[in-house]
């Protein structure tokens, strides 16, 4: 079975790669493109550690084939910061100690960034439901939710909301 040639855009860069049909987008990111920030926690769309943004929507990259990326625009956790300037969500995760082991963190960062792109002032409940597809086993979610709400406040130009 021959490999497929895929032309796509990842984190703002044009990217071409060869992949086999059964390789997931996550396999391609991690094993072909060395973008290992996206993690495989379950491989079944239940944990969200592999979350990426495809054409504006978050998806589990473990449930998308690498060949499906043809012509798409993809953002991974490696593309959330601008150069060495962290995104407010990243900054607030650090300030609120919203990570312990850090394995689920990339998925949360990507999902939370997408939430705040869409909803500048989410409630705690909206934030909890939006992030329900991201499992964290360390934190009990408390500090993650606070970090996201605080990042939203920062992005709205308000200080120290939570």
């Amino acid at each position: 079975m021959s490999k497929h040639h895929v032309t796509t855009t990842i984190n703002g860069e044009p990217v071409e790669y060869l992949c086999e049909a059964q390789q997931t987008m996550l396999d391609v990111l991690r094993d072909e493109l060395n973008l290992t920030g996206s993690k495989e926690g379950c491989g079944s769309g239940d944990c969200g550690a592999c979350t990426v943004i495809v054409d504006g929507n978050i998806v589990c990259s473990c449930l998308m084939l690498g060949v499906e990326a043809e012509g798409k625009t993809i953002t991974t956790v490696e593309g959330i910061a601008e150069g060495d300037k962290l995104h407010p969500v990243q900054q607030k995760f650090l300030e609120h100690a919203a990570l312990q082991c850090g394995f689920c963190t990339p998925g949360f960062i990507v999902a939370a960034k997408a939430l705040l792109d869409e909803n500048k002032n989410p409630t705690e409940e909206e934030t909890r439901y939006w992030l329900a597809g991201n499992l964290c086993r360390c934190t009990g979610y408390d500090k993650i939710i606070r970090a996201v709400l605080d990042a939203a406040a920062l992005m709205r130009g308000e200080a120290g909301a939570v």
């Binding site: 769309g45 998806v59 589990c60 597809g133």
Partner: peptide
Amino acid sequence: IGSQQIQGR
């Protein structure tokens, strides 16, 4: 159906 991530697909 599933999470926000699943909703994307």
